[in-house]
């Protein structure tokens, strides 16, 4: 696995020649609106080779190929959803940085809120318990005088 990774990294370092990025820069000049759309959507998708980079950030061969594909599809008039669907069909939901809400991702989406509710409930109950356990006995005259003296009240 490590070797495969090294192989890929080396590959991306070698194949991602400045030529390709220069090519994209040229495309940017050619059609800035389309190119902005490609990059905006590419930032929503994960580069599976580098994983913690988006397709927009990565200079790997993989990311460049997919950006080229996205560009082609957008030129053909496909909308963003259709392009994302194309990617998900091939690479799975994992390619999306924002996974869709479905039964398998329920905990991912709502887990934190469930924990928040549990935490709030525990806090509420323990505060109530503590309130009950604190005894409130009124001060007698002597205690009141001492308290006033300490607080500096006349």
């Amino acid at each position: 696995m490590k070797r495969a990774l090294a192989c890929l990294m080396l590959l991306s370092a070698m194949v991602t020649s400045p030529l390709l990025t220069a090519k994209e820069a040229a495309l940017m000049a050619e059609d800035p609106v389309l190119e902005k759309r490609v990059m905006a959507l590419a930032h929503e998708l994960r580069c599976l080779v580098c994983q913690n980079q988006s397709l927009g950030d990565s200079h790997s061969d993989f990311a460049i190929d997919l950006r080229t594909e996205m560009r082609e599809q957008m030129k053909q008039g496909k909308n963003d959803d259709q392009v994302v669907d194309f990617m998900v069909e091939r690479y799975g939901d994992f390619i999306r940085f924002r996974p869709p809400v479905k039964s398998t991702t329920f905990l991912l989406w709502f887990g934190p809120f469930i924990l928040l509710v549990i935490g709030a409930a525990v806090l509420f109950i323990s505060l109530k318990k503590r309130k009950r356990s604190v005894k409130t006995t009124p001060l007698n005259d002597e205690e009141r005088k001492r308290a006033e003296a300490l607080l500096g009240d006349k």
Binding site: L5, C7, L48, V49, L66, E69, R90, Y91
Partner: peptide, 14 residues
């Protein structure tokens, strides 16, 4: 050109 690879969802050879 990696077209077939893309349809198969290839992202790391082999």
């Amino acid at each position: 050109d990696g077209r077939v690879g893309m349809d198969f969802g290839v992202y790391g050879v082999p």
